[in-house]
């Protein structure tokens, strides 16, 4: 997931808010002409704030996907405009994912800790995000072990249960035991109290400009018929 991280991300709560608002707004105005201008405005906003690389990667996935869904929609309904709108909606999903996808997990948890979010939540979120790629690697290892033993990856439920689900659960238990021991050894405590944050994340003037431009986009999209 580090491949998607940007060096200077937008203030995390603002990024999440931006994704939510833009997605809802986009879906509500998806039948208007201004919808496609909203998509362009979002892309330009990302380019201005250093999200160009991530935007490119997202578009690489979402442009073919949206075209495919649009084409399927056309095949079913035989309506060009409806298919175009469907293409736009899928593209919107991809564009809305850009700021949250590129948010470094440590910055997200630091900003949440700064907002007095419970430690249990910040710890859990950090572990879940950090261990996602590790568990992908673990899954690959289990599948490789299956192949080595001559067990084919079939849809046979019994095989999947014995050779895949049981080892995966065992690994989850093992990893969580070691990790929790490691966290406790470092003195981490879930009790709420005075806490210090390593490199606190603040709302900067850059975030303010982003926020102002975001509001301008929203107003423009709503006013423009």
């Amino acid at each position: 997931m580090d491949r998607f991280v940007v060096s200077r991300p937008i203030y995390p709560p603002l990024s999440i808010l931006f994704s939510f608002v833009m997605l809802l707004l986009g879906l509500l105005i998806s039948k208007r002409e201004s919808f496609f201008f909203l998509l362009i405005a979002m892309a330009l906003l990302y380019l201005c704030f250093g999200y160009g690389r991530i935007l490119g990667k997202c578009l690489l996935v979402f442009v073919p996907l949206s075209l495919l869904v649009g084409f399927l929609s056309y095949l079913i309904a035989r309506q060009e405009i409806a298919a175009l709108q469907m293409t736009g909606r899928i593209l919107l999903l991809g564009l809305c994912a850009v700021p949250t996808l590129s948010m470094p997990p440590s910055i997200l948890t630091r900003s949440l800790a700064g907002l007095h979010c419970p430690r249990a939540i910040t710890l859990g979120m950090l572990v879940a995000i950090r261990f996602f790629p590790i568990l992908i690697a673990e899954t690959k290892q289990i599948l490789e072990a299956m192949r080595t033993r001559g067990v084919r990856v079939t849809m046979n439920p019994l095989v999947l249960y014995r050779a895949f689900l049981i080892p995966l659960t065992m690994r989850i238990v093992g990893i969580s035991e070691i990790l929790s021991l490691s966290i406790e050894t470092r003195g981490f405590d879930l009790r709420e109290g005075e806490q210090t944050i390593f490199r606190p994340v603040h709302f900067t003037s850059r975030d303010g400009i982003f926020c102002a431009l975001m509001i301008a986009c929203i107003v423009g999209a709503v006013v423009w018929k």
Binding site: A120, L123, G124, M125, L126, V127, A128, I129, F131, F132, I134, L135, I136, T139, L168, I172, V173, I175, S176, E177, L179, S180, I183, E184, F188, D189, L190
Partner: peptide
């Protein structure tokens, strides 16, 4: 901490 870590690792597995 043990509970939270277990649930978080399980959540990551669910995403996988």
């Amino acid at each position: 901490v043990r509970d939270i870590v277990f649930l978080a690792v399980l959540a990551a597995a669910l995403t996988v």
